[in-house]
Design a protein around this nucleic acid. Sequence first.
DNA 1: GACCTCTCTGGAATGTCGTTCCAATGTTGG
DNA 2: CCAACATTGGAACGACATTCCAGAGAGGTC
Lengths: 250, 250
Amino acid sequence: MCQSSEVTTRTRRSQRRTEALSRERIVEAAVELLDAAGEGGLTFRALTERLATGPGAIYWHVANKDELLGAATDAVVAAALAVGPTGPPDPPQDGVRAVALGLFDATDEHPWLAAQLSTRLSRGPWASVTPRIFESVGRRVRALGVPEGDWFTATSALVHYILGAVGQNAANTANARTLGPDTNRAGFLDSASRAWEELDPDDYPFVRAVAKQLRDHDDREQLLAGVDFVLTGITARHLPGGQAHTPPAT
Amino acid sequence: MCQSSEVTTRTRRSQRRTEALSRERIVEAAVELLDAAGEGGLTFRALTERLATGPGAIYWHVANKDELLGAATDAVVAAALAVGPTGPPDPPQDGVRAVALGLFDATDEHPWLAAQLSTRLSRGPWASVTPRIFESVGRRVRALGVPEGDWFTATSALVHYILGAVGQNAANTANARTLGPDTNRAGFLDSASRAWEELDPDDYPFVRAVAKQLRDHDDREQLLAGVDFVLTGITARHLPGGQAHTPPAT
DNA sequence: GACCTCTCTGGAATGTCGTTCCAATGTTGG
DNA sequence: CCAACATTGGAACGACATTCCAGAGAGGTC
């Protein structure tokens, strides 16, 4: 394969691209690739092909793949939280529920988001995407009447729960898709439930006992139930009345 | 590099290994590599070197890297939950707190665990490591007196919170280590707090307001506070008395 | 218009990784 | 002693992220 010297005249590109490359366009293409082919679908090869360019051009706008993934995550989360930016004057509890559902829907639409969120949070929790979510939830906590000294603790509890639940729940739908086009969420939960029922009765009595509830549960209901647990806990501690529980509008 | 044919006589290994290779030994070595060099430290090359063998031998015992990572995660989590296997007869609340702290300490000892837990959960939440944690928490929920129909919802809420909080909190300590040997956890939180304070005052008023609390907070206290929020929420809903809150032993 | 300079481009090359392939080895049982 | 067999480990492969660099276009200067 040792070609002679004349090859150094590289086949120059047809001409300069009509539409300039930009970080925005790259992130946009990255999100599309991730949506289409999942986590492993984002490669620089696929990216160069889709943008009709070379790796060097992309690296001019983006430091590396990790930063690109972070930017994609950030863009999607920002869009998800943008539904009620500054927080409408509805009851704070409803606001927190809206944030949770917004993230839930985002992970549903972008199946790769759940894994990305978890990975990013466990690698540098206080950067990038966290402040956005923290701010969104924290404002409602403040509006609840929680004393200032407990803002951080209460908000952290809510954010941790929401991210944990969203990551795990939305994966149900996402995983069902990867199992095949014919397998729907119900089928996925069905097989998961069966797997639980087949565990060792001595080691896993409880898990076996709730296997049926796993099959029948509704992700959104469960997400909201958990949010309400935390909200109740927060208000019960700080507001002796503890009238925290406004049931979610169904 | 085109060598002649005599090279086909490969330099055969000295002799058969004295101690047989086994899946156990491989997983053990994998955990050690992960502990020593972090997430990126586990490569088949490093593994073959450490075990003084070749890739083929490892692949005979393990399907692929993903399965190996899963096995490593499973082993570490199993060890973390093995402190009180069947659940001692202490108050259920304390039991849940013990599970949370056990996972917290495990991620502290194995910094890679947080990311692995999140990734695995969001990719196939109902397999591998989840039943173990679910069982552990679920037994205490049952012991709390929660009606059977709500076991799954209540346990899910607790597990989601614990995993979310553990993943994010333990990362504080882990990230402090990667920042350099001289940077400790306090230094890490300090710079994170400063980053929060430098956010746009218009977009992030709440985050800026709690930046100081971020700097001063204690991970374990906060973890337990969140667990208590959820526990309070659970018991308040189901047990009208709502005497759920046994303050953690400090 | 000819020149320089600076930003931006994209094709080739590099090194590492997970994984596969297979000749060779010790072991087991006939 | 020999033929299956489970197991080993070295070499090779293809994909990937990343780096390098020759060059194209745009804007300025004379």
